[in-house]
Nucleic acid binder design. Structure first.
Lengths: 225, 225
DNA sequence: ACGGCTAGTGAACAGTGTTCACCAGCTTAA
DNA sequence: TTAAGCTGGTGAACACTGTTCACTAGCCGT
């Protein structure tokens, strides 16, 4: 009896249609300006129908964000080339590549300012922390290999690299670069400069390391209504 | 006849009351969750009254953002101490200090994700570019003094430092740091590491320099309705 | 052929930003 | 002192928003 299966497939198809429509609309109109009614109209369903697939508009975004983070994090584990420095370079280069290959997901995850905060969905996005721990371990391997000074705080290093790359990607995607400027060069420069700075062994003051992060309490910004 | 003057004062007082109420509400509830009605109720006026002071809810934010940017940028010009490296350190340290001394303005300007984009109000926020040009000039002075290699792109340097500091401030203000972690140390580390990296003269690929920035066209995110 | 389940609906609720005809009260001129 | 005019402020409405809920049409297993 393939009926249950077909029903599930149908349901999954509608769910996908909602997500695809939402992704397109969110990235062209901005999350804030997209209403449930617009999504419903796009997939030719009534607005209320969507609520039998997602409990809220925010949850549609969370589903898309989860897809995005899995897309970004998954293949990061299988980068097993060359020395530690090259591997680190490659890993963070991925962050930039992702912004170019999946601009819609990236825009939703990092540049749209009208989107709800994922900090609330702690369990759901716990796997992102797993990816981060992996990056920290990579830096630690670099320290053991003598590439970085032993005094270097791996978590701080990861943060520096991440924030820099994120900045370039956002700048690039939001068309804030000058006409002649090449985002690939800028991304490469950010990695190079930051890595060079980390290698100099400049005195770092930070003591308490934060591998885990993610705000449990919301601040200025969206609050669950 | 001080009547006109008193009328103007009254009007200015109401305007200030609106801005103060809005600033408080925006930073505690989040821009998105604050309605004109809530602001009106706070200042004991009708919702419609507000529209004779500001053309839209977004414009209330723009007014606050402008105040914030002026607060942040103004005293940056009178930092005339010590050598170029110390001056640069001091200038960017200001960015961090600002986030602690004016957390409400900072949250509105950089961490609240539900706020409208200022890219649209190009003329109004042109003075921010002026401040940025000042930073670039400071880096150039550092190059002339031999602190940085001649190959260094000043605009890229400014961007690296800015994005790093911004990251720390946001992290700190949104309570994303681990319990033991000191934001001041982290901020200091970011400046130190980035400056060290810039001084090494690591190869930079970027060619087209962008002193001016600010998107004229909106992307994913709020669009003028 | 019939009961039950369920995906989907239309209508409504409470809230949003914004507009507009209107009015009270002060200011100014006669 | 009175009349006209202006202007800051109002209440009510418009066109939206996210979300809920009683209900139904149609397919399922019996």
């Amino acid at each position: 009896m393939g009926i249950k299966e077909r029903q599930e497939r149908d349901r999954e198809a509608v769910r996908r249609a909602i997500l695809d429509a939402a992704r397109d609309l969110f990235t062209t109109e901005g999350y804030r300006n997209v209403s449930i009614r617009k999504i419903a109209e796009r997939i030719e369903y009534s607005p209320a129908a969507i609520y039998s697939y997602f409990p809220s508009k925010d949850d549609i975004f969370f589903a898309l964000a989860e897809e995005g983070f899995r897309l970004l994090g998954d293949p990061a584990t299988c980068t097993q080339t060359a020395g530690p420095l090259e591997r680190i370079r490659a890993i963070f280069w991925r962050l930039y590549r992702f912004s170019r290959e999946h601009p819609q997901y990236f825009a939703l995850m990092f540049v749209d300012r009208s989107v709800p905060r994922i900090g609330r969905e702690y369990e759901r996005f716990a796997f992102v922390l797993e990816t981060k721990r992996h990056l920290v371990a990579e830096i630690e391997r670099g320290i053991e290999a003598g590439v970085f000074p032993a005094t270097l705080n791996p978590a701080v290093a990861v943060r520096l690299l991440t924030v820099g790359l994120l900045g370039v990607a956002v700048l690039s995607l939001s068309e804030r670069l000058a006409p002649g400027e090449d985002p690939e060069c800028l991304a490469s420069d950010v990695i190079a400069t930051t890595l060079a700075g980390l290698q100099t062994g400049v005195a770092l003051k930070s003591t308490g390391v934060a591998v885990d992060c993610g705000a449990k309490e919301p601040i200025a910004g969206e609050r669950a209504s």
